[in-house]
Structure formats: structure tokens, C-alpha cells
Computed example of a mutant assay.
Amino acid sequence: MTLLDRPLVTPERKTSRFRPLKALRHFRKLVADKEDTEQVFHIIEAMKGRASHKQAWNFIASPEGQRFLHEETDIPAMLDDHARWADCGPNSVAAHYIAFMKREGLSAAGLVAESNKWQPPHERPQDLTQWYFDRLRDTHDLFHVLTGYGRDALGEASLLAFSYEQNRNAGILFIAYAGARQIGKVSGTRAPLFDAIREGRALGRAAAKIAHQDIAALMAEDIEAARARLTIGKPAAYRHCLAILESEGILREQLALGSAQAA
């Protein structure tokens, strides 16, 4: 079955799931082991309500969505093909993305693999709605690059707050606020962590939807021009919190949901 042969929604898809107690159980597992990223997918699925499905359907029906469906671009393979972006300028989105991925030891394929640990592809509904949700997953690290949020615990939580306003999945917002609360609990910091979460939501609400963009064209853009076009503001509250954490002897690289270590 090709992508264009898929139905919008298969009968087995649940479009009104909202199970906060299940999300809480999986969040506790994530706190116990921050590297257990499979728990993130469980939380998102447990809180995926009708709003995120409606957004998927609206995008699929849009001219842009229809164009991307016909193109059938494999986004992870495209992003991981670093040679493809060799001619882009040093300040392009592509150049910043590649530098970020190399620095963090990441790949787009790696994120897909983590997702597949949670639910193998053959167990997922084979519909266009899943194509949209995969698109949200596959562009996650581009969100990091364009917003300036790091991969420290507060950066991830703030980015999830940004992403909630883009994608409308309550599970993402749950992790953002619960994550900020846990960071404060384990670090004892005086940094206004929830200001960073609220700022993330405001920035995400003001910005154009990143996952709805032509990703190939976006990669070739100058990053500052792309941020201006997408109206992505600067995360000032997040950076302020990092400065306070550093002054308290807590390095961002050492800050995790489950533990905070003094520098």
C-alpha cells in the first residue's frame, strides 16, 4: 500500500484518548531513568486527544498537506543525508542542524528507532493520520535548532511547552510542567522555571507551525531569516534560568529530571 492509498483514519484508531493516570505512571518511569525515552511516547499517546487529531486532518486536507503527501518525502532519511546540504551557507538552517546533531550524537533515524521501541510500525494504524504524527516526531530536532532550546532538562521541558502550542497534544504539556516541577524539586534552584515553560507556550503560540513547512526548503534558508519568517522569538526566560542555575553551581549538562549534581 502506498501512502496515497491509505485512508484518513482506520477503524482501530482511537481519537479521544485521555488517560492522565497512565501518563503519570510513565512519567515516574522517565524520572527514574531519563534515558528511557520510550516513556515519552507512552505519555504522548495516553494524552492524545481529539484536538491533535483534528489538527492532523486539517493539515492533510490543506494544499500544503496534499503536496507533501504526493511527494512522499522520507524526512528522517533527508535530514540524515548531510551531504545533500553541503552547498548550503554556513548560517543556513541545515548547517546549524548538522552541527547540533553531531554535537549531541543524534540522528533522525535514531529518534525513529526510539519510537519503534514503543510501538513497532506494523502495530500502528496505517492511515494518513499516522503520517502526520510521524511528521511531528521527525521534525523534533529541527524545533531545537530553530528555537534555541538546548537538550538539558529545562530546555526539553520548555521546548515541549512550545511544541504543545504547535501540536495540541496534552501529553506534551503534561511533561513540560511536570518536568519543570521535578527540576525544581531535585535542584532546589531559585530560578523561575515555570516562567520558562510559560514563555515556551507563548513563543509556540506566536510561531508558524514548523512541522507544516516545506522541510527541504527550510533547511536551505538562512536561520535568522527562517526564524523571522516563522516568527520564532528568543527564549529569554529559559536563558535567564540557565544563568541562575549556573551561578548556583548546577551545570545544564548535569541537570536531569531525576537528579541534579553540583558542578
Rank of each mutant, 00 (worst) to 15 (best):
49 G>H: 10
125 P>H: 08
31 V>M: 04
202 A>T: 15
112 V>T: 14
171 G>D: 07
53 H>K: 07
229 R>I: 06
145 V>M: 03
87 D>Y: 02
198 R>F: 00
155 G>I: 02
60 I>P: 00
160 L>Q: 14
165 E>N: 11
239 R>G: 00
82 H>W: 14
260 A>T: 13
174 F>I: 02
78 M>E: 10
88 C>A: 14
9 V>F: 03
54 K>F: 03
3 L>Q: 11
219 M>C: 08
253 E>A: 07
41 F>A: 15
144 H>C: 06
144 H>P: 00
253 E>Q: 06
110 G>S: 10
165 E>M: 08
103 R>S: 12
42 H>K: 09
191 A>M: 06
39 Q>A: 10
103 R>Q: 13
75 I>P: 00
137 R>M: 01
7 P>K: 07
84 R>E: 13
71 E>T: 10
204 G>V: 05
170 A>T: 12
178 A>K: 09
221 E>T: 08
166 Q>A: 08
76 P>C: 07
191 A>I: 05
170 A>L: 05
218 L>T: 14
109 A>D: 12
27 F>Y: 13
135 R>G: 02
200 G>D: 09
43 I>W: 06
20 P>Y: 09
136 L>S: 10
259 S>A: 13
107 S>Q: 10
189 T>M: 02
208 A>M: 05
115 S>H: 09
62 S>D: 12
196 A>D: 08
61 A>Y: 07
200 G>H: 10
128 L>T: 12
113 A>T: 11
58 N>V: 03
157 A>T: 14
16 S>R: 15
143 F>I: 10
40 V>C: 06
226 A>S: 11
71 E>A: 15
263 A>K: 14
132 Y>Q: 10
34 K>L: 01
135 R>Y: 07
38 E>H: 03
158 S>P: 02
176 A>C: 03
81 D>E: 11
187 S>H: 08
79 L>G: 12
116 N>V: 04
68 F>T: 08
23 A>V: 04
154 L>S: 12
149 Y>M: 06
49 G>M: 01
249 G>T: 10
71 E>R: 15
86 A>V: 05
33 D>L: 01
99 A>I: 01
162 F>M: 08
160 L>S: 13
97 Y>C: 05
104 E>V: 00
247 S>A: 15
158 S>F: 03
122 H>W: 04
153 A>Q: 07
52 S>M: 03
139 T>Q: 03
24 L>T: 12
92 S>Y: 05
103 R>L: 04
177 Y>D: 12
